[in-house]
């Protein structure tokens, strides 16, 4: 994850260093994903779609919390926003799905900019509470203001794309997210972002304009979340405030990243796979699933604050270190 290629860095066992190889692997993976709906049974396409959406949300949340130290409980506000903007544009402006998704990303950016002034004044825990309030306020707003169909919500009135097409949209969104995350976490920007996370005041003393850095991360994450929300809305064909602005959309990405590994490059993917798998196993007991998520959270925070990826990294390092010491 280090951005700087400094002299005689010991090669880390788990990272594939060469950028070319990385790009080739990533492109192949996305090509496979794009082709997947042709061969996969519908059930797996369905689950795959869910997984893709969760990975996008978790990547965005990891960018904010893991790299930027902005622990947000407001994912659902941008998710719901994207859903309503998308459905609104499809129904009333005759927008195609891609146009609508792009517009919801822009709406996410706009709201992020508007809210940033207030939210970024809050540090640490208070930022978290502020984002929670934002999500709740938006949900109440949508329920009460007459334009959004109240508690019943809205239906998509045009024909919907098939699940295979949606899966491909989700793949494209994930590709976009992966690209953005690669840029945001593997670039000079990531150095500044992590500096702000570690010590905002000290970062200021070396010239970092913390507000702008945080805003940039917040904008990127919000745009990704809003697009994911729009995509989910198109898939469902109907949206209502309790679903789209539901607390679960804030909880799930957080749980995924904490399970996978906060601030770890592959934390979102590993966590999402596990989370969706457990969710499918307990599909008939949704409350139990959420309760188990809560227990997992508490246990991981206490015993493995860097999640599964953190445990794996530590294990690999131990294995890598032992033989090296054995050598003379």
């Amino acid at each position: 994850m280090t951005v700087l290629t400094s002299q005689n860095t010991p090669q880390r066992a788990i990272s594939i260093r060469s950028p070319t190889i990385r790009i080739v692997i990533a492109c192949t993976a996305f090509a496979v994903l794009l082709a997947a709906p042709i061969v996969l049974p519908a059930y797996f396409v369905e689950i795959g779609f869910k997984l893709l959406i969760y990975i996008v949300l978790a990547e965005a949340w990891n960018l904010l919390a893991g790299y930027g130290g902005l622990v947000s409980l407001g994912t659902s506000s941008f998710f719901g926003l994207g859903a309503y903007v998308t459905v609104g544009l499809i129904n009333h402006a005759g927008a195609g799905p891609l146009q609508a998704l792009a517009a919801s990303a822009l709406a996410g950016i706009a709201v992020a900019i508007v809210m940033s002034r207030g939210l970024f004044r809050l540090r640490g825990l208070y930022f978290t509470v502020g984002t929670l309030a934002l999500a709740e306020a938006l949900r109440l707003f949508v329920i009460n203001v007459p334009w959004f169909g109240g508690a019943t919500g809205l239906f998509v009135t045009v024909d919907l794309p098939e699940i295979a097409a949606l899966f491909r949209y989700a793949t494209l969104l994930l590709a976009l997210a992966a690209l953005v995350m690669a840029l945001a976490t593997g670039s000079r920007f990531s150095v500044l972002l992590r500096a702000v996370r570690d010590d905002e005041d000290a970062a200021g003393q070396v010239g970092v304009r913390a507000f702008r850095i945080k805003l940039a991360a917040f904008i990127v994450a919000s745009a990704l979340i809003a697009s994911a929300g729009g995509l989910q809305a198109i898939k469902l064909g109907a949206i209502e405030p309790y679903g789209s602005f539901g607390l679960q959309w804030s909880v799930d990405p957080l749980a995924i990243v904490i399970i996978g590994g906060l601030g770890m490059r592959f934390g979102a993917i590993v966590g999402a796979v596990l989370f969706v798998a457990i969710g499918e196993l307990l599909a008939d007991y949704p409350e139990l699933h959420v309760a188990i998520t809560g227990v997992t959270l508490i246990l991981l925070i206490r015993f493995a604050p860097r999640g599964i990826c953190g445990l794996a990294e530590a294990a690999l390092r131990r294995r890598g270190a032992a033989p090296r010491e054995a050598r003379p």
Binding site: T2, V3, L4, S6, R188, V191, L192, R194, A195, R197, D198, D199, D201, A202, A203, V206, G207, V208, R209, G263
Partner: peptide, 20 residues
């Protein structure tokens, strides 16, 4: 001292470089 604790020493220096 208030270094950026979770970053390497080189990255600590890079913060100022990349910021300016």
């Amino acid at each position: 001292p208030r270094p950026f604790l979770d970053m390497t020493v080189a990255e600590n220096l890079a913060v100022g470089q990349f910021s300016l």
